[in-house]
Nucleic acid binder design. Sequence first.
DNA 1: GCAATTGTTGATCATTTGATCAATACGAAT
DNA 2: ATTCGTATTGATCAAATGATCAACAATTGC
Lengths: 214, 214
Amino acid sequence: MSSTPRKRAERKTPAERRTEIATAARSLALGEGLSAVTLRAVAARAGVTPALVAHYQPSMDALIAETFDAIVAVEIEEVGALVAERRTPPERLAILVGTLLDGSREDVTVVWVEAWALGRRNESLAASVRHRMDAWQSVIVGIIDDGVETGDFGPVDAAAAAWQLLGMIDGLNAQALVRWDGAGERDTLTTRSVEGLLGLRPGALAPHVVGGAG
Amino acid sequence: MSSTPRKRAERKTPAERRTEIATAARSLALGEGLSAVTLRAVAARAGVTPALVAHYQPSMDALIAETFDAIVAVEIEEVGALVAERRTPPERLAILVGTLLDGSREDVTVVWVEAWALGRRNESLAASVRHRMDAWQSVIVGIIDDGVETGDFGPVDAAAAAWQLLGMIDGLNAQALVRWDGAGERDTLTTRSVEGLLGLRPGALAPHVVGGAG
DNA sequence: GCAATTGTTGATCATTTGATCAATACGAAT
DNA sequence: ATTCGTATTGATCAAATGATCAACAATTGC
């Protein structure tokens, strides 16, 4: 009547098993946070023994880093695809900000926040965090560069502005993790801030194009 | 050759001891992060037994929450005092942003980030975090309200704008925790963003008044 | 079929953590 | 000086974590 009567796990290809464990770790991280990605928890979710999880990873630090990396990679890919659907830089920026601030990614935000904290004691994780932050920044730089070229945006330092915007988004999302009331005006106010950041006149960004229902 | 030969700790007033333990916890948190505030670590730093630390606190969760609370209270007080030295709302806002982004408070930033993460499993801490975030927001609201009244700022929703600004600052600081290169343009770009946020024209905020050396 | 390879497990360690409790000893009150 | 309250301690628990390793068993290759 206690734990599930575990029969021996089917013998699988290393690649398969590796994937299963990675998947288990990811789902755990998204559901309970990165700090829940523990040897035994991952093993339980994957339906195998803790020893097996350890067998496939040099250390838990590495598995945690890998898990963070995978989750954020998907995030970037998804949002990147959404951005690519838009044609003009202002539209792209608006959809990016709107999507990242729509509050539908709390699970990923938790992973980010925990990664910042855990990264201070997990060098592999810290490296992944830096890597993925660079990746995010690159996406934004691409948009801003385009906009500067087309004249949609003012002549700003794209790299610096991208870091700035990324920081804003991260901070607002982290804040939303704690402050229930929530999204509210975040999108609107962020848009105004970005207008200031990029040297646009008020209202230049994010007209009806974005949330357009109909 | 190993650990210090501990003689029995002097018997002190509960108030004194309580203060000592709180101080030890605070210095630990600022030096090593909130997650380093552990029963034994605090005891060691305070020069007492783990049992004594436990004796003065209902639980470690409570001590951690209290420690966070104390650290942030000081932060708010210090910056608040700095702000109060300035007379006009734009100056006040500029000094606030400039101070919080000058990179000289990494230790406190670590505490914030860890609090966001740990707060998900420590209800007392989560409550303190909400409380102190509200306090910070109030400070900013005060400045913005004044500015709106004097006409220095546009007719914005002070509460929402304050949350927005707070989120920006938190995010940029958290980012600086990971990204070595550092401060750079953060202050400048944030100022521009805030101008957009508050409906000012570019350059209206943060003239020479702020970093004015001389 | 048989042996070799290796995926998989159970058992077990060493650490670290928060917490409890009877016993000790210091300081104040009488 | 003796008593009493309590600050302080040492010992000890229980739980959780990462990690290791000899043994077992399924798949593969011959």
